[in-house]
Design a protein around this nucleic acid. Sequence first.
DNA 1: CAACTCTGCGCC
DNA 2: AAAGGGCGCAGAGTTG
Length: 619
Amino acid sequence: MKLLSKRRIALDTETTGLFPFLGDRPYFVSTCDNEGKLWGIRGQVDPMTRNVSWTRSQLQQIADLTEDERLPKTYFHAKFDVRHLEKIGIKTLGRIDEVMFMVHVLFSAELIKLKPLAKRWLQISDDDEHVLRAATIKARHEAKKKGWKIAEKDSQGEDPVAADYWLAPPDLLWRYGLRDAERTLLLYYLSLEELEKDPRFLRKYEEEMELWPITYEMEGRGVRCSPQICQFEISRNRIKKNFHYKRVVEAVGRPINLRSPKQLCEYIYGKLAMPVKSYTENGSPATDADSLRKLDHPIVSEIVACKAADVAIGNFFQTYARHIRLEEGLPILHPDFQQLGARTTRFSCRRPNLHAAANAFNTRSFEPIQARTPFGPRPGYLWVHSDWSQIEMWIFAAESQDEDLLADLATGNIHTATANRVFGHGRDIVAEEMKEGRSNARGRAKMLNFGVVFGMGVPAVMDFLKCSRKEAQEVLDLYYRGYPRIKPFMRELSDRAAREGFIWNRFNRRLQVPRGSAYVSVNYLIQSSAAEYMKSKMRWIAPYLRARRALDAYLVLTIHDELVIEVPAPLRPEMLLALKEIKAELENIHGLWWPELKNLPVEFKITRERWDKNEKLEV
DNA sequence: CAACTCTGCGCC
DNA sequence: AAAGGGCGCAGAGTTG
């Protein structure tokens, strides 16, 4: 009987915050077993320090469950709970199931949060949390008066109230915490039933779970991030900001908050009475850098420069500095990768979002920011970056089976080839323009190549080329004529998406397509295929490196079409050999589209000290 | 104070 | 007919 009741459990933890690597700790662990039995255990939170203490016997009781290899464990956000438990010395062994992934595999377009899901699917009301929240908010006010250390508001999406549920009356916490474990287990069984209806669902889920420990380890290693460089960049940008701000204030005649679209509007379109050239989604006059630049006024460059310095400080360096922790003498930052962060199955990255670290060398921004300077390999290591060149274009060509696009990609200079095909009609129009000191065709071709993959329509082309509707339509038609398979391919896919509400990609993933926006299915197909290709390669690389521990090499970042591996410096012959093998595997499509299409080209780069500086690497 | 929306902006 | 896809995050401003 006892064995039966322990067949499967769901676990949930309440913690003092979202950052296990920065010292937040679990103070409540709850479980629900497959007979519906609920159990919880609560640690002591010191109100002055927010430190959590557990007795030896309490830890043992938790470990008896999580370290039991034969007991499968179910979570709603497994990485969060497992990491927090790891930080209080509790291992998690045996099978792990992640309900969030199950739900994503089934309904990629759904918003995935535990309570709304449970409310909708299980008709479990979310009242318990409302009650708990209200009680916590009240308790927070009183705790503040007593000088207790309550969670502070943090603009990174952290919910300070949730991190303070320990302040609420214990009975509420018990009821609430236990019910989340219950929700999780119920959703698990419900999702499992759905997954079992199609072997492709189960397969995708298993693939994600195979990747789960790889993501977990990658985050666990983290990246070096220098707090000194962050501070230096903050000071440097403050000086820059002040310099430009002074000029702005001189022109405006009074202080103005440039981060406020409202104040900017009042000045630009009110006081200066500049003509409004573009609007936001909601119909108010736009004040973004691109719109302002259209106005061609000397104050604009000052505003843009000032804002850029402000963004550099606030969005990048300060944010990074907050996440750095000294570990064995090294300043390390652990990003939080969401393995199914996007509807298209892409990873996302948060707290901080290293997918968005500004790179001045790559941007076409008016006022480029370099936010990568603090990051780099640990001492004694290098970063090797792999990067698929034009992977989405290759997939677009392969999926549409457009041999002309494929041939142009094979030239290694896709945008030039497109320009010559679409606008030159066989002539080398790019070379001709170069001779005359113009370069119109290639830029247009590049815009079209990217734009079409994104689902760009006539209005976007009009905006880009600043031309009439008729001309924009003509340019698009020229493109479709150059690559004759593309239009029918897009049409067939969109029609299917409109009919069925989803599409399947070549990796057997089902993707939900929002009703009324069937055109996005083209992008979903391409983006998801690239994402799955990346994931399949991560599932190959991680065991490859693990099996060669002597190489001392680790995955540290995954950025859509780029992988970063930290390897010992300098590169030894056996490492170069391994990199050669890795490169060959990254390039190998294994006949996924058709036998003649063998490779997706990969480039390697190397970072020696700082992420902003890298060089080509031939292996 | 908490919870929300809007805007803008960085990346692939 | 009419549509540039996918993210995360900071700060301003509004609402109750």
